Amino acid sequence: MARTRTTDSARDGFFAAVYDMVKQVPRGTVATYGQIATLNGAPRRARYVGYALHVNPDPGPIPCHRIVFADGRLADGFAFGGPEAQRAMLEAEGVAFLPDGRVDLAVSRWTAGIE
């Protein structure tokens, strides 16, 4: 089935909102896919956030490396060189990691939208 303009427009609008929100994640902190989805009014769309970031049109200004899974894991398919590259970028910003390789969310999570 072909997509309609409405569907494409809604997707593009959601993606733009994701990119705008990700730009707000401060250096040295991370947010989760679900957190970005919730902050954009779509709490059940974490995977859609992931897809939007996978096709990030402007990786420098849109710091998608700052987005991680809810348990602090890095994305296996990180588009810019794999999880090792993502970790190096985060470490360079001062993000804390646990011994098992996950981001220490208690220390490094952006608090926007967290209750």
Rank of each mutant, 00 (worst) to 15 (best):
I114N: 08
A70Q: 14
A85T: 07
P43A: 09
G82Q: 14
G81D: 13
R44E: 03
P61M: 13
E91S: 09
Y19F: 10
P26R: 15
A88T: 12
T29C: 11
D104Q: 12
Q24I: 01
A75Y: 15
I62A: 01
C64A: 12
A96G: 06
W110S: 13
R5M: 06
R87M: 15
V49G: 04
T4K: 02
I67H: 14
M21F: 03
P59C: 03
C64T: 06
K23L: 06
A10K: 01
P83K: 15
I67Y: 08
D58N: 05
G41Y: 00
P99Y: 03
D58L: 07
I62Q: 05
D58C: 05
A92C: 03
V30A: 02
S9R: 15
V55K: 12
G50L: 10
T32M: 13
R5V: 09
V22H: 07
P61N: 13
A2Y: 09
D104K: 08
V22F: 06
A52G: 09
S108Y: 07
R66F: 01
G28M: 07
L53T: 00
Q24L: 04
Y51F: 10
R73K: 14
D100Q: 02
R73Y: 09
Y33R: 05
V22R: 13
S9Y: 12
L53G: 00
D20F: 00
A37Q: 04
P63W: 02
T38R: 10
I62D: 06
P63M: 04
R44Q: 12
A37D: 02
T7F: 02
H65M: 04
R66E: 02
